[in-house]
Amino acid sequence: MCLAIPGRIIECRGDEALVDFHGNRLEISKIMTPDAAPGDWVLVHAGFSICTIDKHDALETWGYLQQASASETDEPVSDLAGRSVPKLGGTP
């Protein structure tokens, strides 16, 4: 029922904070995590940080969000095409 994603606090102004989500920045209220400071990772739901998270935990749980797609990792073209095509399904 509740989408929330981790981001890193860039700056704080009173109860408000600017949080970075890998290139997306949102003004949030940190009233529910009053001790959160710039550099901290927080979980944000509907414009509010609902808890702070250890950076290691954030990266482990949401690591896939940071991953580049296969095509962004500059794999050799032949390998990519060769690897992806034959393995799909069982149709001849």
Binding site: M1, C2, A46
Partner: peptide
């Protein structure tokens, strides 16, 4: 709308 996750946001 929403449950305990969202309600504090409305309260604030």
């Amino acid at each position: 709308i929403g449950f305990e996750t969202t309600a504090p946001a409305t309260a604030a």
